[in-house]
């Protein structure tokens, strides 16, 4: 078996420049099928930029991205979504004036066929499709734990936690094979983060999903991921198993600054 059949997503030498600034520099990266991997790094490290490249929102200056063996470099975002890559956003981007269930129905856009005339004349197959999609949306909302009482509320009126849930449901409803989560635990307390961690594992087990996670909360990262990649100033500075990455001096330095890193190292040496 060639390696790309085991990896659901591969990025090779991805670089993104904005004017003179290099936001992502020569990052290669792979997500093994069915795994949960994390992308970490300090603020401004280029994690979200990298996400946006993977989902087609940005065109990389250099490099290639392949999803299950298919080249998706600079593909249109909607097409990449249709192939099976779904995402959430760091600062929740729901369609505020649509209801929760409508939001999730939009997530299934790529799985629907009704066009202009189908929408106007609404033949039986379109009716059937609408019903199916609505039922699926409701089911997905239940799955992520949204009470059925609020399915018809406008997204803006939902609580923060529910908005996060709807966003995940919206991504899930498209039946993706790879789910990209951009800081899903932002603004959550320890207990909520904990349950989200379990939820991610459940997702993987229930749907055979692969998950890529951008995360700041180290407990979540360490608890859930099989593989961690660290970006700093747009460059990959470390990758590997969570424990190994955590003790990598370069990573400590990126997070804590040089002085602090040296102090810690000295302490450790002293202890030995």
């Amino acid at each position: 078996m060639s390696p790309e059949q085991e990896n659901i997503l591969e990025a090779h030498g991805v670089t993104k420049q904005f004017g003179g600034l290099t936001a992502v520099n020569d990052v290669s990266f792979a997500i093994p099928q069915g795994s949960i991997v994390s992308l970490i790094g300090p603020n401004g490290a280029g994690k979200t930029t990298f996400f946006n490249i993977l989902t087609g929102l940005y065109k990389p200056t250099l490099g290639r991205v392949a999803f299950s063996g298919k080249n998706i470099t600079a593909g249109r975002p909607d097409k990449i979504m249709a192939l099976g890559v779904a995402r959430t956003f760091q600062n929740i981007r729901l369609f505020g004036t649509m209801t929760a269930i409508e939001n999730v129905m939009v997530g299934q856009h790529a799985r629907m066929k009704a066009g202009l005339f189908g929408s106007i004349f609404r033949p039986p197959w379109v009716r059937g499709e609408e019903q199916r999609v609505r039922a699926k949306a409701a089911e997905t909302l239940e799955y992520v734990g949204l009470r059925s009482g609020v399915h018809d509320q406008l997204a803006t009126n939902l609580s923060y936690g529910d908005q996060r849930r709807v966003e995940i449901a919206r991504a899930l409803a498209s039946e993706p094979r790879l789910l990209l989560l951009d800081e899903p635990t932002a603004g959550m307390n320890a207990q909520e983060s904990e349950s989200l961690t379990r939820f991610m594992q459940k997702l993987r087990d229930d749907f055979g999903l692969s998950i890529l996670l951008i995360e700041h909360d180290m407990r979540v990262v360490m608890g859930v991921s099989e593989h961690v990649t660290v970006l700093d100033h747009g460059e990959k500075i470390s990758e590997g198993e969570p424990q190994a990455v955590r003790s990598d001096p370069q990573v400590v330095e990126a997070y804590l600054g040089k002085q602090e890193a040296e102090r810690q190292r000295a302490e450790q040496e002293g202890a030995v």
Binding site: T55, L57, R76, P77, D78, K79, M81, A82, A86, R87, F89, R93, L94, F95, G96, T97, M98, E102, M105, V106, G107, Q108, H109, A110, R111, R170, A171, S174
Partner: peptide, 19 residues
């Protein structure tokens, strides 16, 4: 729904598969 999604948030809409 696709129109309203685009009106609300173009980036999110295309990311959700709306061409």
């Amino acid at each position: 729904r696709a129109w309203i999604a685009l009106r609300e948030d173009e980036v999110a809409a295309v990311s959700m598969g709306v061409p």
